[in-house]
Simulated scan of single mutants.
Amino acid sequence: MNWYEKLNQYFPVEEMKSKEHMETLLKEKGNVYYKDEGPYHVLMYAEFSNFSFVDYLFVSKESRGMGLGKKTLQMLKDKNKPIILEVEPVNYEDTDTEKRLRFYAREGFEHAASIGYCRRSVATGEENSMEILYWAPNGETEEDIYEAMKKAYKDIHSYKVEELYGETHEPVSKVLTYKEVDKENVLEPFTNQIAN
């Protein structure tokens, strides 16, 4: 199974970029967009001067518990700049979402509760709400993360969308919002488990 098939099998259709989109990013934005893959993992990420953005992280079920996800993230943490990623809201009927959030809480990620993120999927046309998680080694604020996420949306998610899919992405101002009033922290239940 190739890297795209692994991602496509794991991530919901509404979250997936087309293979052509990812290959275009790798080719035309190769100074920013990268693929790190091995037999049991695929990491697609963008590295900007002041943050890293995880587009997709897949670790195969058969290798879970072996520390592969931790090692993969450590490569990005070693760069000593914020790491930003999107996750599905917790769904207690889908144990994967819970495991994913528990993993990121263990890895020291925080929930950007003041950032709202909802975009229309180019694959399904449906609205897709996601949560933003971040790791901030130098005390970066949620406002810093919001600015970085806007850049990731414009430079990665929206790159050549009209050319590749025949439609435009919604403007960043419609997709991302910043409110001082915090939503519920989706990592709190898992952070509390780690502390106990």
Rank of each mutant, 00 (worst) to 15 (best):
K99F: 02
S173H: 07
T124G: 05
E147Y: 10
N2T: 13
H157Q: 13
E20R: 09
R119Y: 06
K6F: 01
G116T: 08
L164G: 03
Y92V: 08
E28P: 04
K174S: 11
L25M: 09
N50Q: 14
S158E: 13
H21M: 10
K29A: 12
L76A: 07
N50T: 14
E170H: 11
K19R: 15
K154V: 15
E86F: 08
Q193W: 10
E143G: 01
F48Y: 14
P82L: 03
F109V: 00
H21N: 13
F53R: 01
G125E: 06
L85G: 02
K160Y: 00
K19S: 04
P82V: 09
S121E: 07
E23C: 03
G30I: 12
F190L: 10
P82S: 14
T141C: 01
K183R: 15
V13T: 11
E147N: 14
K151M: 09
E131S: 12
Y134D: 05
K77N: 08
S18M: 00
T191K: 15
V161G: 02
K179H: 09
M130E: 11
G108S: 07
V181R: 15
E14S: 06
L85Y: 03
G69N: 12
S158H: 13
N50A: 09
E143L: 11
K81E: 06
R120Q: 02
Y10K: 13
E14R: 05
Y56W: 11
K27E: 09
E93I: 00
I115E: 03
H157L: 01
P89D: 11
V54R: 11
L101V: 02
R102G: 07
P12G: 07
Y165M: 02
D94S: 01
H111M: 00
V175D: 03
A195C: 10
Y56F: 15
Y159I: 14
N185K: 08
K183V: 07
D36N: 08
S121V: 12
A46K: 06
S49E: 15
H169I: 08
G65I: 10
A46P: 10
K81V: 01
L176E: 03
K61N: 07
M22G: 02
G108Q: 10
